[in-house]
Each structure stands twice: as structure tokens, then as C-alpha cells.
């Protein structure tokens, strides 16, 4: 792995952290405010691709573990890894991996719609597929109860998936990282 790739990985770990520092948007009808953090998860996969996206979120979790308050709401430290919602945390590297895999697969015909497929499957599907069973095991509740409890996050996550898809397409045009354009082929 090149040092440049390490820098990209560190960058998206830091970006996910910076997004966590943004104040959460409270929504009156929802018990949980919408945070920008999982936007970082989707973006890491969509911009860097599967391998580097996975490593970026793994590095982010290390930052949390060593005691930086970079999770939304200023949380951090080892406490969050043993809490009931820890499964969602553990899901993030996998979510970035899946998002990245789909984006790499669809790279040639990436538009807002195909990018949205990647961010929804990776950034929402994977997160809930890991987070909800963990929560139900931890709290000793049924899967259905844990799933209903997590439903409140879905509207916010959908908004973030759309934003991530729009951003991924724009960044692909301006600064493609997954596949660098071949100069010889595009030069007049």
C-alpha cells in the first residue's frame, strides 16, 4: 500500500470524525437527532473504494477507542464499544466496504441513481443487518423489538444516502480516486 493511500485512509477517518463534531439536527417527531457521521461512512466507501474505505473506518474506530471524543455528541473512548449500540459502530467498516464494492462495480456508469443503490445497500442495509441483531442480543430483546426501535433512524439515513450519492458523483467527476483517468486516452 502506497503512502498516498495511507493518507487517503487517514483523511476519511478524520473526515468521519469531523462530521461527528457537527451539531446534530434535532427533529421534533424523532427521539434521536440526525447526525452527519454516517455520511462519512458512505462517503469513505463511495469515494475511496472498498479496500481503502474499509480501512478508513477501521482507523476511525481506533481513533474512538484511544479516547478521542469524535463520535457524534462528543462521545468516544472504550465505553461506546461495550454499549448496546456498539453493533452499529462495528458495522461501519463493513458498510464502507460494501458501498465501495458496489461503487467500484458501477464505476463506469456511476450516476446519482446507481450511486444511491450503493449508499443505501452499503450505508443503510449493512449497518442495520449488523447493528440490529447485536442490539437484540445485548438487550435480550426480540429481533423485531430491536428493529422497531431502530426504525427512527431510517428517515435521516435516507436523507444522508441521497446526499452521499450526489457528493460521490460530483467528486468522481472532479477528482476520481477509485480509478484515475488515463491521460493518454483522454488527451486530444
Amino acid at each position: 500500500m502506497k503512502t498516498r493511500d495511507l493518507a487517503y485512509i487517514a483523511l476519511f477517518a478524520a473526515l468521519t470524525a469531523a462530521l461527528g463534531l457537527l451539531p446534530a439536527i434535532p427533529v421534533a417527531a424523532l427521539p434521536v437527532p440526525i447526525t452527519a457521521q454516517t455520511l462519512g461512512v458512505m462517503l469513505a466507501g463511495a469515494v475511496l473504494g472498498a479496500r481503502r474505505g474499509f480501512l478508513a473506518l477501521l482507523l476511525f474506530l481506533v481513533l474512538v477507542a484511544v479516547g478521542l471524543p469524535v463520535l457524534s455528541g462528543g462521545r468516544g473512548g472504550l465505553a461506546v464499544f461495550v454499549g448496546p449500540s456498539a453493533g452499529f459502530l462495528y458495522s461501519w467498516p463493513v458498510a464502507a466496504l460494501v458501498t465501495g464494492l458496489l461503487v467500484e462495480l458501477l464505476w463506469r456508469r456511476l450516476n446519482v441513481v446507481t450511486a444511491l443503490v450503493a449508499t443505501v445497500v452499503g450505508g443503510i442495509g449493512v449497518v442495520y443487518a449488523i447493528g440490529i441483531p447485536f442490539l437484540s442480543l445485548y438487550a435480550d430483546t426480540s429481533l423485531a423489538a430491536a428493529a422497531t426501535g431502530s426504525l427512527v433512524f431510517v428517515p435521516g439515513d435516507l436523507v444522508k444516502a441521497v446526499i452521499a450519492a450526489v457528493l460521490a458523483v460530483a467528486v468522481r467527476r472532479a477528482y476520481p480516486v477509485v480509478e484515475r483517468p488515463r491521460r493518454a486516452a483522454t488527451a486530444p
Binding site: A10, A13, A14, L63
Partner: peptide
């Protein structure tokens, strides 16, 4: 990578 992330 950790040091870079802390700085970033």
C-alpha cells in the same frame, strides 16, 4: 496513518 488522522 493514526498520526496523520489525528492531524487531519
Amino acid at each position: 496513518a493514526l498520526a496523520m488522522a489525528l492531524r487531519f
